[in-house]
Design a binder for these strands. Structure first.
Lengths: 304, 304
DNA sequence: TCAACATGTGCGGTCTCTTCGAACGGGTTC
DNA sequence: GAACCCGTTCGAAGAGACCGCACATGTTGA
């Protein structure tokens, strides 16, 4: 393998173009450097230095070694940092999976605050649709899940905390055929119109919120897209009340009373008890603050 | 940095789960291992081993180090191979740039033969359109250029060899308006019809073969596409005679006499004299064989 | 042309660091 | 509780790194 001394040797020889100067730079005797250089060649079983001329030079092989060794050295330095970091109780990385109904924007201030800690932990934030968050936790793809819906399933070592409730509203564009309908709408009436659903293309399986069997659907990638689609009159469906509050106020959407109202969803944060670290603890501490939890669930109302 | 001994130490401890067994496996005294382990911890300034329980275990930091160090070790082994290879006179990699009018298929047998040498040299074969090959050589993006057209430009240390001549034929689809024209065609007559040109989208600049100013053009990505386009009657232009020989025979294309015939192109192989290596020498040796050069230039006639 | 200087290498001695064996304390197993 | 396993400490022995010196060779400047 390569010692940092050997690397420094190559580096010094390459830059100074001479063994004596390299020796001076490294604070060693010239004979030591000469000895070490020969030893290095013996180790790699290759001519690394061209000694034919007065001042020796690196051969192409020597150049390659010096150059790549510098890269390796860099890798080792980074590895050292990571090891110290993990030894200090910080995870190497923290994988956070949010449900898509949470808006990434609301996480930004927390991420910024986390960055200020300069922990070195690399964050990886992705999102999933519907049950995907629980799956991610079960399959070990996530260290922390934020905004998971429905009841926590049976996962060994599961820990969780309630974030709060998300209320839903059935709303349509005023230009939509249902826009002028009066009185509570039955499922039968609704099912005659296309519904807009959020689906995750990457996993292939078609999931959707509150879809009636046989109903035509328009699958869109995000809740934001669903809201915009419904504003456009492209379909109908349930929307998070708080995120469409402005749109309801200015008439871009109209709320419809339903024969079967939708119960509010309880949102959870969840993690596994067998992995702990300072980054996870910090995030849990933040998320347990009611103000932040409220903001995460409410999201940002779309401006009209 | 990490010595291979230290890496072997981590590996042995991780697998055996005990210092004594690791010592036995490595053929050292237990005291040596204990000492080395502590020294490793001091070096990284991190707790790598959990000594609280009876048999010590790797901490998360230790696991990370062992795992990543194994990866590093692998990198070093690969680097060692590459250094030996370069020291043996083989280049680290050979970048071959062909003109697009050469067909990649005709290179395949040569590549297979090169692979049989098991030199370890990684081949990188790309193609360029028109003057792009010379540029690639000038800008140091290529170690060897095959099939460069036109005269060799002034490039320092340039070396070249003639491959042979490529003859051209002006041909159109029988369903094209020019298909029934008689007698030699003048430039003026031709310029009234759209010409098909080969252009390189990746470099942005529009280049083309023998295009008359003001003439409408259809730019296609490859010579193969140009042939197919002209068979389809989408345009007219010069084509390599040998590659369309079958198509001329079966009537998919008809040759037209021209008032200004096109001179055959001389194709060159070129490289720089200041980089030599066994891989380059081998390729030059192959290319200088007249039979191979002929096959490269003629390409594969498209079946009707 | 010759002297002064610079460069790379070989040798013997010194010094540091690794390694070992022996002894000890604590934990596990039967 | 005896036998065994495990990790640690300590002094001694050995290996390898390093230095100073001498020497051959090549370069530079007067």
């Amino acid at each position: 393998m390569l010692t940092e001394d050997e690397l420094a040797l190559l580096e010094a020889i390459r830059e100074t173009g001479s063994l004596s100067r390299a020796a001076a730079r490294l604070g060693r005797a010239p004979s030591t450097i000469s000895h070490a250089a020969r030893q290095l060649e013996a180790r790699f079983d290759a001519l690394l230095f061209d000694r034919r001329r007065y001042r020796l030079q690196l051969t192409p092989a020597g150049h390659l070694l010096a150059q790549e060794a510098a890269r390796l050295m860099h890798d080792v330095a980074r590895l050292t940092r990571r090891v110290k970091q993990v030894a200090g109780g910080w995870e190497d990385r923290l994988r956070i999976v949010t449900d898509e109904i949470l808006e990434f924007d609301t996480l930004l201030p927390v991420i910024r605050a986390f960055d200020k800690l300069e922990s070195g932990v690399s964050l990886r934030i992705t999102h999933e649709v519907l049950g995907g968050t629980w799956e991610a936790l079960r399959e070990g793809r996530a260290d922390l899940v934020i905004g998971a819906t429905n009841e926590p399933p049976a996962i060994s070592q599961l820990r969780w905390a309630e974030l709060g409730r998300m209320e839903w509203v059935f709303a349509v564009s005023p230009r939509h055929p249902l826009g002028k309908a009066t009185g509570p709408l039955s499922q039968q009436v609704v099912s005659a119109h296309r519904s807009v659903v959020v689906a995750d293309s990457s996993r292939g399986t078609g999931r959707g919120y509150g879809v009636v069997a046989g109903q035509a659907t328009l699958a869109v990638p995000t809740m934001r897209a669903k809201i915009l689609a419904q504003c456009d009159g492209l379909g109908v469906g349930w929307l998070p009340r708080h995120r469409v509050s402005t749109l309801l106020k200015n008439g871009a959407l109209v709320e419809k009373a339903m024969a079967d109202p939708r119960e509010p969803n309880v949102l959870f944060a969840a993690w596994r008890g067998d992995h702990d670290g300072r980054a996870l603890s910090w995030w849990l501490e933040q998320i347990r603050q009611p103000r932040l939890a409220r903001r995460l669930i409410d999201g940002l109302p779309l401006p009209g």
